[in-house]
Design a protein around this nucleic acid. Sequence first.
RNA 1: CGGGGAGUAGUUCAGAUGGCUAGAACGCUGCGUUUGGGACGCAGAGGCCGCAGGUUCAAGUCCUGUCUCCCCGACCA
Length: 571
Amino acid sequence: MKYTKLFGKTSKAGKVYESKSVEYLFRGAFIDQVMAGGYTFLPLGLRVLQKIEQIVREEMDKIGVELLMPAIVPTEYWKQTGRFDTIDVLFKVVGANKISLERNSAEYVLNPTHEDIIAPTAKKFNLSYKDLPFAVYQIQSKFRNEVRPKTGLLRTREFRMKDLYSFHKDVEDLKRFYEVAREAYMKVYKRLGIGDDTYYTAASGGDFTEDFSHEFQTKLETGEDVVFRVKSNGLCFNKEIAPSLSKAYEQDKEMKEFKDVFGEGIIGVEDLCQFMGIKPYQTTKTLIFESEKGVLVASVRGDYDVNELKLMKVAGVKQLQLATEETVKKVTGAEIGYAGIVNLPKDVMVYIDESVEPLVNFETGGNKTHYHLANVNWGRDLEKPNMFYDIKVAKLGDLYPETKEEYDVFKASEVGNIFPLNTKFTKAVGYYFTDADGSQKEIYMGSYGIGTSRLMGVIAEKFYDDKGILWPANIAPYNVHIVSLGSEGVKEAETLYNELMDGGIEVLWDDRTDVSAGEKFSDADLIGIPVRLVISDRSLQNGGYEFKLRNSKESKIVSKADLKTELAKIS
RNA sequence: CGGGGAGUAGUUCAGAUGGCUAGAACGCUGCGUUUGGGACGCAGAGGCCGCAGGUUCAAGUCCUGUCUCCCCGACCA
């Protein structure tokens, strides 16, 4: 490709973004923004995306077969699985032509994922035990009405995704395949150059499953997730579910005098600590929730937050929300902000985090507006419960409960996600298989996603320097970037350009004659193709082309005869 | 969805307390000089000041509404 024929131009300056790689993707003319969370992949960017998708495709072809489902479907599909009203990122669309507006009330969904479509589709064909197991996948655009798109390609409202679905005769086979998929995923990340920084991480199953799901998290400073890693065994947990044991602080030896403290309008740990002259770890934070089983009280040490997912599991409830003002008043007898664990009504369930257990002379809310209790002690001021729980959001410095070792904690960005769906979707659509003995049996399903456009953003974020992006060779938009300078350089470049292309090498030739050498070099660095070849009158006098790798400062003269061997070393 | 900020040239922005033909830089076009790390001179094109109302003799500037974008938070299968 000649630079002058490329659609999209590099730019010297642009908006300043939080993430440098986003700036480079714009300045290098890889992407263009059309709306919040909606991007055009310009020719350079599209080539990168397609190469990523090709690598994903090659690995998925080893474990499944590719098909393509429509991005838009009638709402019935989503109603059948009960997700039409529960998923709030759905785009629901209607025809806008005159006849539709007047006479047709049909509504459609722009699919955010395709479990709800593939299950009924599979039901049309694969009904026998002889068909199982099988796996299908597609690479396609997905639509999610994210309320807050972010960080370039990392969270968008329309994005590219590879989604694979597997179907099994029993849960054991699903588990077997789950591991197969996991390995295929790791191969993808390895080929994309992020294998060493990508961690298999347990996460909440969300809507999908009561089990954990698993995420593939790539270590990244600008990532939006936090991963807790157990160093001794390599286990990783997403912050949202990481089991945690708090580090205990040294406590007073003697109990101090229990007292009421009047602090008008003092709410929140920070204000409270300032007011009472104590540290957050000497306080407790007590929240009131409502669930389908009634009111729940949860209390954690003041420097922690309540983890609702953990609380739901511990309490065995499916629905949980912060209590309304009225409920709080009823339970605590006080306005919001003064809840504590002393003198609670007997009929509410109370869950106290293990971080609170070792405290001596601690603070808790007074259950009376404007009042807090100081120097509270177990046994003396309230009965010590038989059981303490882990219901807190894990934080830096916490220990993994089983081995008592401190977690390695890092920020990461999710590049893949796999779910054991079990029978949730197949049951919903009435998809069963006929076993060898003629009986109808349940089908187990798994779902496996890789966001390919997001991967492009993650990779860019992983590989850049102060001049631009450094694409890994196998996903760079082109293999070689030719910079021609001077009349002899241009002549020779033209010849070489054609020869390389005939030899199947992808070349971007900066054939501009009206810009300075420096500008071409800067653009080459910005675009980030692994090999730069300068062909100039000077280089030709020196016996060939100036060969420079993007990730190196050194360049060397390479003769035409040696060029092939040099290029072969790269990919 | 809550809080904050912003919409002016292709892009990034400047345009106090309303006032005449609305500016800069970059980019773009033409001519000339340059030509190994984002060159220079001269000339030029390019604007319904997001949209709709309102106040006023007068609105890019003030008011109301609305749409869009950005940031923080909540959410995130």
